[in-house]
Structures are given as C-alpha cells and as structure tokens.
Design a protein around this nucleic acid. Structure first.
Lengths: 335, 335
DNA sequence: CATCAAGCATCAGTGATCCTGATCGATTCT
DNA sequence: AGAATCGATCAGGATCACTGATGCTTGATG
C-alpha cells in the first residue's frame, strides 16, 4: 500500500524542486529523501520525478501528487480531530439520562456545556435507568444519569482516574450493599420525595405530613423496574409500620399527577419530577422524607475524555444549584 | 503522522469485531494486530477500541474510523490510477505538434487513440517546432511532432528503449549529421514540397516544373526560425544554380496562399499544408521535389508509458495512410 | 580549460520497527 | 471444572529507514 509519509516526501520534493531542499524542510538527510523517492517509484512502477533538468514531476508524478494532497489533507484532518478530541473540545459525547433528569437537570447542564464546548457533538438519549445502565455497559454511551436507591448503593463520589496510582475505591461503588457493576459514580443530588395529594384531600392544608397518616390511602407509584421509587417507598412504609395498598404503577409522572387529581390515590413523587405541577393537586413534605440518589455514572475502565470530565463537573454544579432552587421552591409552596 | 496501514488494520478490526478475525483477514498474526492497534492508540493518545466486551470502537475510534474510510479510499484511488497509468489506459498524455500537423495528421491519429484509450487524458498543444522541442526538453510534454530538415538529421527511426536488451539502434538517430539533443525520433513521413502559383501564372498549365524555371520569381516562404522550409529551399535553389529573391516570410500557410493569390510571388509549400487550397492558386510538382521530414520525438531518458508507445504507433500508421492519400490527391490534381 | 559548488545516487552500518511464535490471563461456553 | 476463544505480552529475527561518506554529473566561474 502507498505510504503516506512517502507521499509527503514526494510532495515536498515537487514543491521545493530539489531533494536537498525537501530534506532540509522535512528534517531528513538528502540520502533519505533519495531512497524514499526511489522506493516510491519502485512501488509505483513508474518514474515519478524527472531528474534530468532540476527535479520536476513526470506525468505519473503529477497524477500521484494530485492524490497526495487529498490524502495528506485527510490525514491531517483526522489528526487534528483526534487532537481536539484528546483535548476535549471536539468529538462525540454520548449521554443518556433517565427521562425526569433529561427534562429538568440535564438541559441546564447541556446549555452551559454547549457554550463552553461548541464543537463537541453532544447527544442525549432519554433512557429508563436499566437501559441507561446497559448502554453504559455496552459502551454505547460515555456518561449516564441514573437514579438509585441510596440504601442499596455506597456513598458515591468522584471516581479516581484509572491510570493514576493509588486508586481509592472508597468513593466508588463496592461499599456495603455495593453494586456488581463496574461503574464509577458521581453523586449529583439527593432527590427528596414528597407526597402528592388531590387538592381537596383532607390533609391538603397541612404543611407537613407523617407517612403513618396516609396508611389507609391507595398509592400510585413509578414502575419498580424503572426507578427505585417503589423500593424506597416500601421501606419507608415498613418503618412507619404499615403495608401500603397499591393502586397503580406508571412510568410517567404526569400520568401519576393525573391519577392523583382524579382521586384514584395519593403518590410519592420525587422533587425532580415537580418541575410542573397541576393546579388540582398539592405537594406536601413528609416528616422524614425518603430520597433517591441521582448520580452520573461512567465506565471506570474506559478512557475519559476531558469533555466527559467537564460535563460531569458541570452536572455537579448544576445539580447543586438545581437543589438550592428546589429548596426555595419548597419554601414558596407553603405560603 | 498517522499510518494508513494501521488505519486499515483498525478498520478491519472494527468491521470484524475481533483482533483474531482481522488478523486472519489481513494475513497477519493476532499478535501483530494487537501491537499495531496498541501503537495506533499510543499515537492517537486515546483508546480507540473498547476491549471489555468483544471489541468495539470507542467514541474516538468512531471518529478515526470515519476518516479512515476516506483516507483508504483515496489511497486506493491513487493506486488504481497508477496501475492504469502503468498499463497505459489512463493518466495524462501531453502532446505537442507543429501547427500544420496539428491540423492535419494529428487529429486523425487522436481520433483513433481516443477510441482505444478513452480514459487517457490526452492534451494537444500546437507549438512551433522550437517551442515543441523546448517543451520536450523541459519535460512539459511526452511526445512532440516536429518537422526537420532531412539533410541535417539522421535517418530517424524507432528509438532504442533504454532498459530493454537487444533493441537494435540501427533505426535510431545519431547518424552522420546527427543532432545535439537527446531525443529519440520516429520517422512519420516525408512531407514533399510543391510549388504554389497564382492560377494565372504562365506555368500554371504545366504538370511538372523544374525549379530553374522559377529563378526570376519572388518567393514567399515559412519563417526560417519556425520551420526548416527555407533552409531546404535555399539548398534546392543553390543546386538549381540560382539565388532566390525573397518577397515575404510568413508563419501561416493560409497567409502564404493569400500572398500567392494576390500575385506577390510564388511559394514552396509542403504537401501537408495543402489540406485546403484556394481556388485562385494552383499547386504543381517540382521535378526533384525537396521534402521535409516529419518525426515524432520523445525524451529518450524518460519513462515511456504504454500510452505513448501506442500513440507513436498510431501516428506511424496514420502517417502512412495520410501519405498514401496525399499521393492519390496529387494524381487527381492533374486531371 | 580547470576548478568549484550543488545536487542526486549509492553503499555500509546502525537503530528502530514490524512480524512471528509462544505463553499468559481473562472470559465464555459446554 | 474443563475447553475454547480472545487479547496482551515477550523474545527473537527479519525488515526497514535513516545517517554519513563517497562518487558522479552538471552548471557556473575564474
């Protein structure tokens, strides 16, 4: 196969009009140029340079030079894109997020990210948590936003960078009740869960509610296999000393709002899902509110581009602002 | 610089999904593939393949693969064009010819050539003989049609090919009165020169004229520095025992016809320039007609593509037919 | 005409690179 | 558990690329 380095040499020779000049320009000796050109001509089976009067490309040389520019330009493109990718300001960044995050937290982070890294090709797929985990495992995405049950997972934290020495696993998973997946997790926020009641519910006027007070209600919850909501809820009820009666499961918090409004039951909803709340339902704090943990997960094995790191950092920042704003919103709710 | 061979390996690995399969496909061992991919990743500074579960390209790998196809395709293009060029059925063929040939003999040869080698990019520049010789010398053309004085040049013939053994040089130039340029010459035809008279000239009715009979005429001839016509004519006159009186020089045979028709003088014109003859002039044979030699000249040093060889051969054929046709036309002229 | 400088070709030597074959560890399938 | 597959790694040998020296040709200069 034609060697691009030799094409570069040929081009330089043609451009400069002499082997020696090309050698100087490329940092070789004249001897090396001569040998490489000879090798290229041997390979081509045709003389490429007319050495008789100066050095000029022959017809065949012209033909090859026409291609050489294109080939070398494309190689240079590939190299510059690789360089950009290595430095984080270009290339693909494939994100997945569970739908609620994809509609609330993530857009904020992405807006900032795009401003800072306009050339990164950022893609976001909203995927339910198990699918997101699978995508990460399959290498189909670089970064996944997941919700998890805080009592099933470790404390979470910034993952140690793989090539660095002394990799501490204290932040990563694998602690008590650790997970069996190899992901690094970064804690973004604890998504507190509130109770949603029909606006005309007997407890709607209360500022804070104890879970036991709702022991006789029918409950509407997110689907068990998508979000950890139900597991968290079950445990909370058990601790409150009752067994909840389930009315419906749904994977859509808007649908859940609809059920609550219609009087089908009450719901435990994560704060994050409350970016829009219908008029005919109210949201009230629980006394000991459970929460679910929102994390950014990465493949600890895989190389992390600077873009991914930057995105994680932005997510952390954005999440903390988001949490502050939610606390404020919670305060307003009670006025 | 990125090595195209490595890109090919990367592509094959990505396509087949395993190092071993790629190794088999490319005729390497798995070890070689592994090492080459590792080298490519080192060079790129980024992991390109995710080896964890099967082998899949990472984001960076995808980026590089996107370029790899383009790069490899272009290299393949260049190679196939080189191959075609080596085999003669593609690539450039740059011809120059003196204007008279460019308007008579050459179009016939080119028509046949194009039918046989449609993919060769054939270019023809009409250049006066000295310019054509310079172009050939400078390597600006592959083949030049020249007119020469037969008494200044050797017999002409098929040039000996430099690398081939046992190619007889008996036909080649370099005989008595040889030239100082390094061109190989192939004799195409002897372009006989006739005398052109005004239609009302006193000798217009004659079938054949002796040069001496025109000793008192004024002569119109092609320019000395462009064509050998004048040198040939001078010598003929000297042999006929007189010194010609010159009226005009012109580099255009149509202009010469105009002068003759206008009665400015008579002219010695090469047969080849008589593809079109005005009504108000006549062309008559000389008794011992001088002739100029039409040759195809090539740079003996340069590599001769099969296309050039084919063109030379076609020119020889075409020239002999052309000469036959001219003889017939000459016969008709006298009826 | 002799000399000199510039330029390409060639050769031997050396260091880098590439490939093979063997082996190891990990993973998957049976 | 055992076999099979796959990638990583290592040592060794072949090849390749480059350097530095030398020779030859050409064109300019005194």
């Amino acid at each position: 196969m034609l060697d691009a380095r030799r094409l570069r040499i040929l081009r330089e020779v043609a451009r400069r009009g002499s082997f020696s000049a090309a050698a100087t320009a490329l940092g070789y000796t004249q001897s090396a140029i001569s040998q490489q050109v000879a090798a290229l001509e041997r390979e081509a089976g045709v003389p490429l340079l007319d050495r008789h009067r100066g050095v000029r490309p022959t017809g065949a040389g012209e033909v090859l030079l026409r291609h050489a520019d294109g080939i070398l330009a494309r190689i240079a493109d590939a190299e510059s894109e690789l360089r950009a990718l290595r430095e984080g300001d270009a290339g693909p960044l494939r994100m997945v997020a569970f739908p609620t995050a994809g509609a609330s937290l993530v857009p904020l982070a992405i807006a900032r990210f795009r401003a800072r890294f306009p050339r990164v090709e950022l893609t976001l797929r909203p995927l339910e948590v198990p699918d997101g985990r699978a995508a990460l495992e399959a290498g189909d995405c670089d970064l996944a936003l997941l919700v998890e049950d805080p009592e099933e997972s470790g404390p979470g934290g910034w993952p140690a960078s793989p090539p660095a020495a002394g990799r501490s696993s204290e932040h990563a998973g694998g602690g008590p009740g650790g997970r069996d997946d190899p992901f690094a997790r970064v804690h973004l926020l604890d998504d507190r869960m509130d109770v949603m009641l029909p606006a005309d519910h007997r407890l709607a006027g209360r500022r804070r509610i104890r879970l036991e007070e709702l022991r006789d209600e029918h409950w509407i919850l997110g689907r068990r296999d998508y979000v950890p909501d139900e597991a968290i809820f079950d445990r909370a009820c058990r601790r409150a000393g009752f067994e909840p009666q389930m009315a419906f499961e749904s994977d859509d918090y808007l649908a859940i709002q609809g059920f609550v409004a219609a009087g089908v039951g009450v719901a435990l909803v994560p704060d994050m899902a409350l970016v829009s709340v219908r008029e005919d339902v109210v949201v009230r704090d629980l006394q000991h509110p459970p929460s679910r943990r929102v994390v950014a997960a990465l493949d600890e094995q895989a190389w992390r581009s600077p873009a991914v790191d930057a995105m994680v950092e932005l997510l952390v920042e954005t999440a903390s602002e988001f949490a502050r704003r939610r606390v404020a919103a919670r305060r307003d709710r009670h006025r």
